[in-house]
Nucleic acid binder design. Structure first.
Length: 560
RNA sequence: UACCCCGUGGUGUAAUGGUAGCACAAGUGGUUUUGGUCCAUUUAGUCUAGGUUCGACUCCUGGCGGGGUAGCCA
C-alpha cells in the first residue's frame, strides 16, 4: 500500500526514525487518526490520513482510526459512517479492523479525573461561564484564581460524583485542572476538563451527563491505546504543554509524543468545516458530495482517484510552514493518474452536422479505435461511421487564423480513427448561422493514414449522428474565483464563489459507453476526463468533468 | 500588547556546517492519428543586519514579515 519513499525524510518521519534508533518505544510505531464525527472529511484530512496511516505502514506499525466523540451536542452517526467510508476508499486499513472511540474510555477517563482530584490537581468550580471568562485574564494579563480552587479533596470528590449522578444543571459546575493562573499560556490557566451536558450521546445514550474536554480526553485516549506518535495540526501546538501535563500528573506509563504539522490550504477553495457546512446548508452547492466540494466524497464523485489523492498528499510534503498549495498541483496529480488508466472515448459537446457526400446513405461502416494509446493492453473498441456525423463547432472555422489546424473550407483533416475529410461547402440558415458542412472523405485513408504519404495537420473527434448517445455533461470549474476566499475581510467569502463553477451541456457520446456504471471514468478525447455520475439513467448518462486536458490552443487564443 | 511557531525561485518542497536540487506553474523547441502524453530546454530562490566558522539555507543575537492562542468546541 504505501508508495515508495523518497530518501529525504520530512521532520515527522525523522523523529520516528530517531525514536526507533534510540529504542524509545521498544521498536513500536503506533499512530492514530482522530476525527470528530461532526462533519465530512476533506482533502485536508486526506493529508493527515496519509501522514498517520502512511507512517504506520512504512514503519511496520499500526494506525488507529479513533472517533474523537467527546461532545454529544455536535456529533452524529451519519458523519461517522462517512468517515469510515472515506478512509477506506482512500485505501487505508485501520489496525485490527476495529474502530476506536474516545467514548469507549468514558469510565476510565472518569477514574483518571478522580485520581487527579485525589492528587490535589483538579477541583470542582462553580464559576459561571462568564465568570470563568473574567477570571481567565487575557493574552497580556494574568488570570485570577477561582474562589473554589481551594476546596478540599473530599468535597471535590463528592461534588464530582454528584456531577456524574446528574444532580446539577448544565453549566453550573465544571471540573478544572489546578495548574497556574499566571501562565503565559492561557490553556494552562486551570482549564476545564469536564462539563455538564444533559444530552444523550449517539453511542453512550444517556449513560453520562458529564463529558470530558478535548485536552483531557485526547492525551489519555492516546496513552490508553499505546500511541507512540500523536500527530496533529499546528493549532494544537499551544496545547502540547497541557497534553504533557495530564500524562505527567497521572504518571501514565505510556506518554506519546505530540507532533504538529501545518494543515493543508488549497487555492480557490475553502477548507473549514464551518464554511463547508454553510455552503451545504445554504444550498450554494448540492450537498457534501457536490463535485465542486473539496470533500473526499465530492472529489470521489468528481472522478478523482484514491491514487491521485495519495500522490498529491505525498508530494506536498509535511512541514510546519503555513503554506498555500496551488490547486493546479492536485489537478496535475489526477491528470497524471488518469492519463495512464482512463479509456478514451469520443464525445461531441457543441454538435455541428457534417454530411459526407460520397458516403452512401444508410451504410454503416465499423471502424476501430485504440482504447488507450498509453496502454495498448486495453485493446480497441468499435466506432460506427456513417454519412451524417457530428463534430465540435470549435473544430471548424470559416475564416481560420494562422495557427488554426482544424477544419475550414477547402481544408482536409483527419477524423480520429477514421478517414481524412475535405470540407467542400458551408451551409447556413437564413440568419447566416452555420448549420451544416458538406464534406467528402478519402476511402484510401481508412484508419487515419494516407497511402500516398500526405499529411494533415489536424485530427478531430466525431460521432455518428445516428448512433451517438445523447447525454449530459456537467462541466465544473473552480468553486471560487479568488485564490483565498475570505482573506479580504470587507467582502463576504460567499460572494466570491465562481459563478461559472458549473455549466451543463448536452453531449453526444460514442455508443461504446452504453451500459457503463456510475463511477466509470474515461477521457473525452481532446477535452478532459469525465466520470459517470450517479444521477445517470439508462436513457440519459450524466458525466462530470474531473479535470480538463491541458489546452495549448486555448493559450494561443488567449494571447491574441 | 504576552507567549508559542514559522520565513529557500511565482507555488509546494529538498539540502541536517561543505556544488542551493526536485516537482508544479510559466516560456521555447522537438515528437505525435488527442493542440493530450512524452522528450529536450529557459526563466527564477536562501526575509534582513550583525556574529561564530576555513566555510552558514543550516548555529547564535537583534530586527522585519507571516501564522497560532483568550470555548464549559475539537
Amino acid at each position: 500500500m504505501p508508495e515508495e519513499r523518497k530518501e529525504s525524510l520530512d521532520f515527522v518521519r525523522s523523529i520516528v526514525v530517531d525514536d526507533l534508533k534510540n529504542d524509545k518505544h521498544g521498536g513500536a510505531v503506533v499512530t492514530r487518526f482522530p476525527p470528530e464525527p461532526n462533519g465530512y472529511l476533506h482533502i485536508g484530512h486526506a493529508k493527515a490520513i496519509c501522514i498517520d496511516f502512511g507512517i504506520a505502514a512504512e514503519f511496520n506499525g499500526n494506525c488507529h482510526l479513533r472517533m474523537d466523540d467527546t461532545n454529544p451536542t455536535k456529533e452524529d452517526l451519519e458523519y461517522e459512517d462517512s468517515i469510515k467510508q472515506d478512509v477506506s476508499w482512500l485505501g487505508w486499513k485501520w489496525s485490527d479492523n476495529k474502530v476506536y472511540y474516545a467514548s469507549d474510555y468514558y469510565e476510565q477517563l472518569y477514574q483518571y479525573a478522580v485520581e487527579l482530584i485525589k492528587r490535589g490537581k483538579a477541583y470542582v468550580c462553580d464559576l459561571s461561564q462568564d465568570d470563568l471568562k473574567e477570571h481567565r485574564g487575557s493574552l497580556t494579563e494574568a488570570g485570577l484564581e477561582s474562589p473554589y480552587r481551594s476546596r478540599s479533596i473530599e468535597d471535590n470528590l463528592d461534588l464530582f460524583e454528584r456531577m456524574r449522578r446528574g444532580e446539577f444543571p448544565d453549566g453550573s459546575k465544571t471540573l478544572r485542572a489546578k495548574i497556574d493562573m499566571n501562565s503565559p499560556n492561557i490553556h494552562m490557566r486551570d482549564p476545564a476538563i469536564y462539563r455538564i451536558r444533559h444530552t444523550s450521546h449517539h453511542r453512550t445514550g444517556d449513560t453520562w451527563c458529564i463529558y470530558p474536554m478535548y485536552d483531557f480526553a485526547h492525551c489519555l485516549s492516546d496513552s490508553i491505546e499505546g500511541i507512540t506518535h500523536s500527530i496533529c495540526t499546528l493549532e494544537f501546538e499551544i496545547h502540547r504543554p497541557l497534553y504533557d501535563w495530564f500524562l505527567d500528573a497521572l504518571e501514565c506509563k505510556c506518554h506519546p509524543q505530540q507532533i504538529e504539522f501545518a494543515r493543508l490550504n488549497l487555492s480557490y477553495t475553502v477548507m473549514s468545516k464551518r464554511k463547508l457546512l454553510e455552503l451545504v446548508k445554504s444550498g450554494l452547492v448540492n450537498g457534501w458530495d457536490d463535485p465542486r466540494m473539496p470533500t473526499i466524497c465530492g472529489l470521489r464523485r468528481r472522478g478523482y482517484t484514491p491514487a491521485a489523492i495519495r500522490k498529491f498528499c505525498d508530494i506536498i510534503g509535511v512541514t510546519k510552514y503555513n503554506s498555500l498549495t496551488d490547486i493546479a498541483l492536485l489537478e496535475h496529480c489526477v491528470r497524471e493518474d488518469l492519463n495512464k488508466t482512463a479509456p478514451r472515448i469520443m464525445a461531441v459537446m457543441n454538435p455541428l452536422k457534417v454530411v459526407i457526400e460520397n458516403f452512401p446513405e444508410g451504410q454503416v461502416e465499423e471502424l476501430e479505435g485504440v482504447i488507450n494509446p498509453e496502454d495498448p493492453e486495453m485493446g480497441s473498441r468499435k466506432l460506427p461511421f456513417t454519412r451524417e456525423l457530428y463534430i465540435d463547432r470549435n473544430d471548424f472555422m470559416e475564416e481560420p487564423p494562422k495557427k488554426f489546424f482544424r477544419l475550414a473550407p477547402g481544408r482536409e483533416v483527419r477524423l480520429r480513427w477514421g478517414y481524412f475529410i475535405l470540407c467542400k461547402e458551408v451551409i447556413k440558415n437564413a440568419d447566416g448561422e452555420i448549420i451544416e458542412l458538406r464534406c467528402t472523405y478519402d476511402p484510401e485513408t481508412r484508419g487515419g493514414s494516407a497511402p500516398d504519404g500526405r499529411k494533415v495537420k489536424g485530427t478531430i473527434h466525431w460521432v455518428s449522428a445516428s448512433h451517438s448517445i445523447k447525454g449530459e455533461a456537467r462541466i465544473y470549474d473552480r468553486l471560487f474565483s479568488v485564490e483565498i476566499p475570505g482573506v479580504d475581510k470587507d467582502v463576504d467569502w460567499k460572494d466570491q464563489l465562481n459563478p461559472d463553477s458549473l455549466a451543463i451541456k448536452p453531449v453526444y457520446l460514442e455508443p461504446s459507453i452504453d451500459g457503463v456504471k456510475p463511477g466509470y471514468t474515461c477521457q473525452f478525447e481532446r477535452q478532459g476526463y469525465y466520470c459517470l455520475d450517479p444521477d445517470s439513467t439508462p436513457e440519459k448518462p450524466v458525466f462530470n468533468l474531473t479535470v480538463s486536458l491541458k489546452d495549448t490552443w486555448a493559450k494561443i487564443q488567449q494571447k491574441e
